[in-house]
Structures are given as structure tokens and as C-alpha cells.
Design a protein around this nucleic acid. Structure first.
Lengths: 177, 177
DNA sequence: ATATCCATGTAACGTGTTACATGATTGT
DNA sequence: ACAATCATGTAACACGTTACATGGATAT
């Protein structure tokens, strides 16, 4: 599972608490991997037991902040994993299930839902493009790390653009007959 | 969850057994929703309890084939659901986690994995395009149902093309400096 | 009859989601 | 002191995956 590795990456960038991690998953990390705070605390507990990370601040009290840092085995585990191979993740999209169902039923119109998705994808795309322009302005000098981070962001942009184009295509196509 | 609806759709097209459903999920259905036979049997059991589908063939014996058909409440449930709204599914991609990790570590080269993914996406794309050409040849007359099914298939094609383009872009970009 | 395969399941576990609970901190 | 908020956590459940088990059908 990638949650462990996403957490290790984020903690390597800057050690922090579980709640701060949850906030990061709602921002930059969330562009390519999502997690709720319950998942994060569960995973942090397991990672601590496995000796990948360590906490400063005692686990005895409940509401006490615990700052986590990555230990050497954690960094090693991340390096090994990052150098490894993974599978392609196939599409798994509710909207497509709806459309396939509508095709069979013949009594449902999905065009409104298509337009709604078009709008949502448009919003997300604009958000990504704003971040790209802010953090990686074109023409600026970039390190290898910057190139990689920009590539990750670009994946999101390409992804949203392709869905947008598809929505336009499907909405225009059948009507154009 | 969309598994229920995907099963209803497939059973409406043609009633069949659980094993046959599993085979369909490995083919056309699997392009936009995946399920193993264990998930399918579990879900069929729940749907039967809920009165959405019914089986011909007794459930008493273990290895006996049971053909399922959709009941009126099942069709109604599918119609309601297909006319409803759904959320966008954000990207959740291991490769991007690897790249973000590599950016932080600075000691890992992900280009080989990128090229591997490029090849895999290329394979999938060719498979989709072959299906599109076979089942929906360009220039042919198409019903509304055909248009919808083609749109679903096109989503897969657009998706794979966009990842392919991204892989090429990332592999070429930093080297082109 | 027996080996093989197929259809149908069970069991166990990991991951993801939702709702809720409790101790600490902060503001008034 | 009290309310509001934050950080941490528990509980329960739904979904997904892997491994395995059992009854029926088929072929030789």
C-alpha cells in the first residue's frame, strides 16, 4: 500500500504531527493520494510499531501533540519501494457505470450529469494550473526535485484536461448527427 | 456503491450466473469497474436478499449453477441511481507517489518505471482501439445506446492516451534541458 | 472410478469511510 | 469557570483481496 510511503515522503520533507499530515493530505499530497485522519493515525501507529518512524511527545495522554520523524529503516524502506515496480490502476468511474446503465435502460438522460462533471473537472483544472503557475512559473530554473514535483502536478493537469475533452466530445457528438 | 448497479446493468443485458458475471467483469465491464468473483457472489447474495434480483436454480446445493434475473424493484433502483449524481474520483496513483518520494529522496531514478508504464499504457490503448474498431466501426449507423457504449469506451481511450502523452512528456522534458 | 475442471461459496485480513469519544488548548 | 476548538483516538462497518474449501459436471 502507498499510504505508508506517502506518509514517509511527507515526514521526510518536514516532520510533523498526525493532524498536520491530515492537512497536507487535503492539499498537495491529496492530488495523487488521499487519506482521512483516521487512516493516518492507524497507519502512524503501525509504522511506529514497525520502527519506521518515531514520535517525540508521549503517547500516554490522548490529546497531546506527537511529532513524528522518519528513522533510518523508514528512509531505507521508502528508497526500496520507490525503486520498485507497480501495476497500472484501471479506470473505476461511477459516471461510466451510469452511462452504461443508461444505455441498457434507454429511459435515462445523463447529459445533465455530464455537464455537471464538465464543470467540476474545469474547476479542478483551474486549481491545478494556478498552483503550477505559482510554484513552478514557466522559464524559471528548476532542480531535479522540482522537475519531479512538477511532473506529478502535470499528471493531474493532463488528467483533468483529458476528462474535460471527453465530456465536450460526448456532449457534442450525438447531438451533431 | 456502483458494484450493485454494474451487476444490474449486466444482468439486464442478459441474465446469467455468477461465474459468467465474473467473466464479463474481466472483459467489457472491467473497462470501467472491476470486481472479483468473491465480491460478485457476496453482492449477488445481498441483492437477492433485498429483492432486486432472483435466481432460478436452487441455492441448496453448492456447485449448482444459479441463473439470476433482474426483478422490477431492481430495474427501478437502477433507473433512480443512473439519473442521480456522483462525485469526481480523484487521482490515486502509485507511480506518482513513487515520483514524489524520489523527488524528496534524491537518490532514486524513476525513468525505467516511467518507460515501463508507457509500454503498459500503450498495450491497453491498442486493446481499446481494437475493440472500438471492431464493435463500433467509423461511419456505421449507431443507436443512442451504441453512442453511449462507445462514449464509455472512448473514455478509456482518452484516458490511456493522456497518460501516454504524459509519460513521453516527462521522459523527454528534463533530458531536453 | 477417478482425475480434472468449473461454479459456488467461506474465512481472514487489509484498506477506506463514517460516526463518535476524550483529553488538551485557547479565548473570554 | 466555561465554551469552543483542536489533536488524538475508538468503534463499527463497507469494500476489496487473497487463500482456501466443497459440490457438481465432464472426460477418460
Amino acid at each position: 500500500m502507498s499510504l505508508t510511503q506517502a506518509i514517509l515522503t511527507s515526514l521526510l520533507e518536514k516532520p510533523c504531527t498526525g493532524a498536520e499530515l491530515a492537512r497536507r493530505f487535503d492539499k498537495s499530497l491529496g492530488y495523487f493520494w488521499q487519506a482521512t485522519h483516521q487512516q493516518i493515525y492507524r497507519e502512524l501507529g503501525a509504522m511506529e510499531r514497525d520502527g519506521l518512524i518515531a514520535a517525540h511527545g508521549l503517547p500516554t495522554a490522548r490529546g497531546r501533540q506527537r511529532h513524528f520523524t522518519v528513522l533510518a529503516p523508514g528512509r531505507a524502506a521508502l528508497e526500496t519501494w520507490c525503486a520498485g515496480e507497480g501495476e497500472l490502476r484501471p479506470i473505476r468511474d461511477e459516471l461510466l457505470v451510469r452511462m452504461r446503465g443508461a444505455a441498457v435502460l434507454g429511459t435515462v438522460d445523463v447529459s445533465a450529469e455530464l455537464r455537471r462533471h464538465q464543470g467540476l473537472h474545469h474547476e479542478v483544472l483551474q486549481r491545478y494550473e494556478a498552483i503550477a503557475e505559482r510554484d513552478f512559473p514557466s522559464g524559471a530554473q528548476r532542480s531535479t526535485a522540482d522537475e519531479l514535483q512538477l511532473a506529478v502536478l502535470t499528471a493531474g493537469i493532463v488528467y483533468e484536461k483529458s476528462w474535460l475533452a471527453w465530456c465536450e466530445d460526448v456532449l457534442a457528438g450525438p447531438a451533431g448527427d
